[in-house]
């Protein structure tokens, strides 16, 4: 039985009439990278605040590292590190000053702190600019510094609230690699809030999907994908709409589960990926002007939609 470093039971938080987090039951093991997926306003940040004793729950129980964040907030926070949604750095100060201040707030012993700051600056490739004001840094540098700050006291659990939001692909990749390093080389437990599916798939051992404050699914990314998508979706872009009889015969092809027309696009659901060439061939023979064929990418919204549809179907 794994050691749970985060456990919640029926965790609930209201803001007036709004239920931001509703009956959350989470169990996260030591060393695990747990992805917390949800759209804007789903309750991700609120959950991080609750788990760190920064906000009190309306109802429910929380254990973080065996402690209660409400009663033992400072003790919990001494062993957790949080990368907040906005980097929240002191822009008039340098990277080194920012790290030193937080090291003092976490009460890292002075000699350890100096060494730790140098190490982190090096690891996050900030050494060359360490004594420049943060105000002049690029977004990616700021995010790396914020991540370094969250690690200043070598926390047991690292909370990352949308670590790559607003970064360009190159900067995002750098941050993702750093997170990978923290998990694989340093074995830290990571609680990663995101609405980026690709990021979650790449980094996470398990993901939980939260929607309107409720956890609607938990599992490894593969488990979830299997549970959600029964088949393979493709999108075919056409130069002009397909005639009705061609559309009808397309639907009769073997392996085609579903066809939807959206403007000049066809959304086709196949039972398996290897049906694609046959479908394309059939379309060409029917006189379709094909501009592009691509696999259908599922947005997080699609997943909720599907999960909810499945849940409704399952309970009916």
């Amino acid at each position: 039985m794994p050691e749970w470093v985060i456990e919640t039971h029926n965790l609930t938080r209201h803001f007036g009439a709004l239920v931001a987090v509703h009956g959350l039951n989470l169990q996260i093991a030591r060393g695990e990278v747990f992805g917390f997926l949800g759209p804007n306003g789903a309750g991700k940040t609120t959950t991080v605040r609750l788990l760190n004793g920064v906000l009190n729950p309306t109802a429910g129980e929380i254990r973080v590292l065996g402690m209660d964040p409400i009663a033992q907030g400072p003790a919990v926070r001494r062993r957790t590190g949080v990368l907040t949604e906005s980097p929240a750095l002191y822009e008039p100060l340098s990277a080194r000053e920012n790290l030193l201040i937080f090291g003092e707030l976490y009460d890292v012993p002075p000699d350890v702190l100096r060494r730790r700051v140098d190490e982190l600056l090096e690891m996050f490739e900030l050494t060359a600019r360490a004594d420049d004001k943060v105000a002049g840094y690029s977004k990616g540098m700021k995010q790396r510094l914020a991540l370094a700050r969250a690690l200043i006291h070598a926390p047991d659990i690292l909370f990352l609230d949308e670590p790559t939001a607003g970064l360009d692909p190159e900067a995002a990749r750098q941050v993702t690699e750093l997170i990978e390093h923290l998990s694989q080389e340093e074995g830290r437990t990571i609680f990663l809030c995101t609405h980026n599916l690709v990021e979650a798939e790449r980094l996470c051992d398990r993901v939980g999907v939260i929607h309107r404050g409720e956890l609607i699914a938990v599992g490894t990314p593969e488990e979830l994908a299997r549970r959600i998508w029964h088949g393979h979706g493709i999108v075919v872009r056409l130069g002009r709409p397909l005639p009705a009889e061609a559309l009808a015969s397309l639907k009769r092809l073997e392996g085609v589960a579903q066809v939807e027309v959206e403007n000049s696009d066809l959304h086709i659901l196949l039972d398996q990926e290897h049906r694609t060439p046959a479908v394309v061939r059939a379309l060409v023979e029917a006189g379709a002007e094909i501009y592009a064929v691509r696999p259908r990418e599922h947005s997080l919204e699609d997943i909720y939609f599907q999960l909810q549809a499945n849940a409704r179907g399952g309970s009916a």
Binding site: A75, R77, G81, V82, A88, Y90, Y106
Partner: peptide
């Protein structure tokens, strides 16, 4: 205004 308070609240400081 500069939105730096939140990071402070996550430290053990009372």
């Amino acid at each position: 205004e500069r939105k730096t308070l939140e990071a402070l609240l996550y430290t053990p400081i009372t």
